[in-house]
Simulated scan of single mutants.
Amino acid sequence: MIQTTYFKTKKVCKVKFSFNGALAEKVELFGLNNDWQTPVVMTRKKDGSFAAEVSLPNNSKQEFRYLINGTDWVNEPDTEQSWNEYGTTNSVINL
């Protein structure tokens, strides 16, 4: 799940990413700002879900994927999808 908060005086949007993965031990978020090398490590919450908050530029298109336990790539189901160079899809949010 994704929640966005826009600020009238800032050129960034606060984006909260949530991932519900019952079998996940570690969830990382890749691709924001076109950075596929440096993950955003998501924090496990008491209910077992994972969350991360990131500030991203307004009026930007962000492609991303979740990496579960270092092996399984997963998309956010409630977002637009875009084909990537590997023949799979990335999640897309437009801010």
Rank of each mutant, 00 (worst) to 15 (best):
I2R: 02
T4A: 14
T5V: 14
Y6G: 12
F7C: 01
T9S: 14
T9Y: 13
K10S: 11
K16V: 08
F17S: 01
F19P: 00
F19T: 02
G21R: 04
L23W: 06
A24G: 09
A24V: 07
A24F: 09
A24K: 07
A24P: 06
E25P: 00
E28P: 02
E28I: 01
E28V: 03
L29W: 07
L29F: 07
F30H: 10
N34T: 08
D35R: 01
Q37T: 12
Q37W: 06
P39I: 05
R44M: 10
K45P: 00
K46W: 04
D47T: 06
G48S: 06
G48K: 07
S49C: 09
A51W: 03
E53S: 12
E53M: 09
V54W: 02
K61Y: 05
Q62N: 03
E63A: 12
R65I: 06
L67F: 04
I68F: 05
I68S: 03
I68M: 04
N69D: 15
N69C: 12
G70M: 05
T71W: 12
D72H: 09
V74G: 01
T79G: 07
E80M: 12
E80T: 15
Q81I: 11
Q81F: 15
W83E: 15
W83R: 15
W83L: 15
Y86W: 14
G87M: 09
T89Q: 13
I93W: 05
N94W: 04
L95P: 05
